[in-house]
């Protein structure tokens, strides 16, 4: 059974039909990436999985359990955490408080402590800045915090929405290395990216989204070598 199974979901914003029947699945231990142009519906897909918006049709199951009718905070308790587009860290909370919020639903003090150490080991920069207000961090540090905060939920499935957005190339490399490391430590990742080259090269499998529909899917390698993908998303003629 797939860890996450998304089946023919349709999501609307008022009259706007943003997702027109999306079906994807993510298996345990994978990195799966979702690429597509601006406005294709990538963030909407992640937000539908997280319960920030709800699908009008279709089902989403997590290890067989339906989650698409649950409010966002209950989906987190079932082990899905997201580092949202644009980071959305709490600027007036300190770094440590942001991480504490990431573990909001948890009661296992020992586990929280262990995960805090895990996050600080992944991002030593955050440890140095524990007491600093998140709003005063640099863009790259805020992205680290957003990922770290999501990890604090100790998720079975980690959703990342454009983690490389607006970062200098050296930081992009760091973030992608860290995603691989997080995955190697056993966390399943669903990654949305504009940077298709990087995303496809670390992903086990990938989907291409166009105006609310999945138009292509395959392994990362297959899509990297697909002429259409090359032309549309990798800028190769």
């Amino acid at each position: 059974m797939a860890l996450l199974q998304v089946d023919d979901i349709h999501t609307y914003y008022g009259a706007i039909h943003a997702l027109k029947g999306i079906s994807i699945h993510v298996d345990k231990g994978e990195i799966v990436t979702l690429i597509g142009a601006n406005g294709a519906g990538k963030s909407t897909t992640l937000n539908t999985i997280c319960g920030v918006v709800h699908p009008r049709h279709g089902t989403i199951t997590l290890e067989g359990e339906e989650i698409h009718r649950l409010p966002a905070h209950e989906i987190v308790m079932r082990g899905v955490a997201q580092a949202p587009e644009g980071r959305r860290v709490f600027g007036r909370l300190t770094v440590a408080e942001n991480l504490e919020m990431g573990a909001f639903t948890r009661k296992d003090k020992e586990g929280i402590k262990r995960d805090l150490e895990r996050v600080y080991a992944l991002f030593p920069r955050l440890k140095e800045r524990q007491k600093q207000l998140a709003g005063t961090l640099s863009g790259g540090e805020q992205q680290m915090l957003a990922i770290g905060r999501a990890l604090m939920a100790n998720p079975r499935l980690l959703l990342l929405d454009e983690p490389s957005m607006g970062l200098a190339p050296i930081l992009v490399d760091l973030i992608f290395d860290t995603i691989k490391e997080i995955n190697a430590q056993g966390t399943t990742v669903l990654l949305v990216e504009q940077n298709a080259l990087m995303a496809l090269s670390i992903a086990h499998r990938a989907y291409v989204l166009e105006t609310g529909n999945i138009v292509l899917s395959g392994t990362g390698k297959e899509l990297l070598n697909n002429p259409e993908v090359m032309k549309a998303y990798l800028g190769v003629e």
């Binding site: 709490f90 919020m101 999501a150």
Partner: peptide
Amino acid sequence: KAMRAVSEDKDAAALMG
């Protein structure tokens, strides 16, 4: 702390559970 988080960004707060 959750109260301060909600006052900054409700959707992000909901994503924290």
